[in-house]
Design a protein around this nucleic acid. Structure first.
Lengths: 211, 211
DNA sequence: CCATAAAATTGGTGTCACTGCAATTTGGGT
DNA sequence: ACCCAAATTGCAGTGACACCAATTTTATGG
């Protein structure tokens, strides 16, 4: 019932390829590594690489989809009496406290960012992930609040909240890339987050308040 | 002093390539047309195509960059006493009146949208254009209002306004694609625009008011 | 333990966007 | 007519990815 030999080998191969690829990307930059090179280093054929990862970008993104579902969880787990915007404000502040990687507040995000910034293909991929997040959250919002398909509010609320989160991430990352320590960034980041959500709350304040 | 033979031929060649390419894209879809095919149809070499357009997507986007600068103009030409958000509200409403192509409110936008939607490469390209718009408007805002580089407000305001515009475009386009007539969409679109900007105004209302 | 099905891996061949370069054509100024 | 610079071309790559036909591995029922 557990995991057969077959399943285990598959997982191992997949992980080996992803790990080796990531190592090469970090060492040489995404665009300077060919899939053939990854395959050779992982001791498999190019076809096998494409068997596990449908594009070269997937080789890098892999775990990124995990962050896509996070906003939906925040929405669903908001407290009674709490509006949607407030729930996200709380979550972002909490993410700052815990240096959550889903918002790019963790150590190592700068390395990640440097690689991404150096590759147009990866930049494009990140935009795609962001759009995906927006779509998923929009659906969840419309679902949760029973909006009909003509109502733009779920789309607007999702977009504005995620845009806010994205800009806060950018802010933190850019200061990280400038070589600053987290301790020096954190208080400003917190203040920026408060201000950013203050811009949203007067307009979206009551949206989706529970009960 | 006018335009020499050389310049004229260059312009003609460029236009011929772009026109023929667009014709092929409309007939067969972006992904089903190769650059070699475009070159053959335009009676030039593949290298010449790449001499004028640095990527295949540029062959399709070409005039898209004109829409990038529009928001900056709206910002700069806002009336005295008018806030930034109000200026954009006015511009969007005006664009609905005139079926402006820069917001995708014109006839023919549906054809354009159908081609784009069918091609991942073009969808990615449109995302890029949107981000470009955001960057340009952000710079203009920061510039105009003398914000220091640490101030997130220009970024937030630019992003929220352009997001709003984008969703209104999507709304209009999706109903177009469903086969509806403009006359039946227009009043709803206008109402949606009012509501969308109503969400923004309480928070961003006074930002950048003149004088 | 073995035959055999099913899945994983491979090699090969091809397409297409795009690059770099060297050779050639063409328009403009003298 | 002559020369330079820009425009155009051909040619030879490279790298991501698709498609397909072997071939190897693992799982399974007898």
């Amino acid at each position: 019932m557990g995991e057969g030999l077959r399943e285990r080998k598959k997982r191992e191969t997949r992980e080996r390829i992803a790990d080796i690829a990531m190592g090469l990307f970090m060492a040489k930059g995404f665009d300077n590594v060919t899939v053939a090179e990854v395959a050779r280093a992982a001791d498999v054929s190019v076809n096998t690489v494409f068997n596990y990862f449908s594009t070269k970008e997937d080789l890098f993104a892999d775990r990124q989809h995990l962050a896509v579902d996070h906003p939906v969880r925040v929405l669903r787990e908001r407290e009674p009496g709490e509006s949607v915007v407030r729930a996200f404000r709380r979550d972002v502040l909490h993410a700052i406290d815990t240096q959550d990687w889903r918002y790019g507040f963790n150590l190592g995000t700068d390395v990640f960012a440097r690689i991404v910034d150096a590759s147009p293909a990866l930049v494009a991929r990140m935009r795609e992930v962001h759009e995906q997040r927006e779509k998923v959250l929009t659906r969840a919002l419309a679902d949760e609040l029973g909006a009909d398909s003509d109502d733009l509010r779920p789309r607007l609320v999702a977009a504005h909240i995620l845009t806010t989160a994205r800009l806060l991430t950018d802010y933190s990352v850019s200061r990280r890339l400038a070589g600053e320590e987290w301790e020096s960034i954190e208080p400003d980041l917190r203040a920026q987050a408060e201000k950013a959500f203050d811009l949203l709350e007067p307009g979206l304040g009551d949206y989706g308040r529970r009960r």
